[in-house]
């Protein structure tokens, strides 16, 4: 599986994501700087990392969503290339209009940094085939703006279409209907606030993130 990890000024989980993809797929992802206008040919996965791109100026993910590389990502997503956005990557995807809704300041106003229990809401997506629906997993979160909000009509639609991939099994940040991760209508773009790349090796304290990458590899290969 050939993959690319985007790097924005202020990204800080790009190397973690690279390491996770490398361990699971055996291939080193291309690291693609935000100023690039094209992605490497024959890419099977685009990963948008966590961090604080552009210092979260204006709104989290707002600047990164308008950077040159995102035009190439939008075009690739439209061709069906899988796109995974984690944390700030999820914020970038909503700001770019590739996913619905918005990620607002956590309801409790605090930065939340801890392992959280998640329920796999749909194991049939491209990204969640390594899990069973209804399974409870533990994956760390680390964010200030993870409070997913959308209007009721949008929430009803994404729930009705089975586009909620993960839900918080415990209160985390005030997200509407406990949503932690969603896919787009075509199913090839996933945004999630928890960090699967931080739960790969037993030394990380848990390995529940690893199956996301393994399931994706199996689905794509």
């Amino acid at each position: 599986m050939n993959s690319a990890v985007l790097v924005f000024p202020g990204s800080n989980c790009d190397r973690d994501l690279k390491a996770a993809i490398e361990v699971v797929t055996g291939r080193t992802p291309a690291m693609v700087w935000h100023r690039e206008s094209a992605l490497p040919d024959g890419i099977d996965l685009i990963a948008i990392p966590g961090g604080f791109s552009y210092g979260d100026y204006l709104r989290s993910g707002a600047m990164a969503a308008r950077s040159p590389v995102m035009r190439a990502v939008t075009a690739a997503a439209a061709r069906g290339v899988p796109v995974l956005g984690v944390c700030n990557g999820f914020q970038v995807l909503t700001e770019a209009g590739l996913l619905p809704g918005a990620l607002m300041r956590n309801a409790g106003l605090s930065f939340v940094c801890r392992p959280v229990a998640l329920d796999v809401a749909n194991s049939q997506t491209l990204f969640t085939q390594g899990y069973r629906s209804g399974e409870r997993v533990t994956i760390p979160v680390a964010h200030h703006d993870g409070n997913f909000q959308a209007d009721d009509e949008t929430l009803d639609r994404i729930e009705g279409e089975g586009r909620v991939a993960f839900r918080y099994a415990e209160e985390c940040n005030g997200s509407a209907r406990g949503i932690a991760g969603i896919v787009n209508d075509a199913g090839n773009v996933l945004g999630m606030m928890p960090h699967p790349e931080r739960a790969i090796e037993p030394a990380h304290g848990g390995t529940d993130g690893r199956r996301l990458f393994e399931g994706l590899l199996e689905a794509v290969a």
Partner: peptide, 9 residues
Amino acid sequence: RKLLANTVI
């Protein structure tokens, strides 16, 4: 519309 406001919210 394109940048300064996120019209979703």
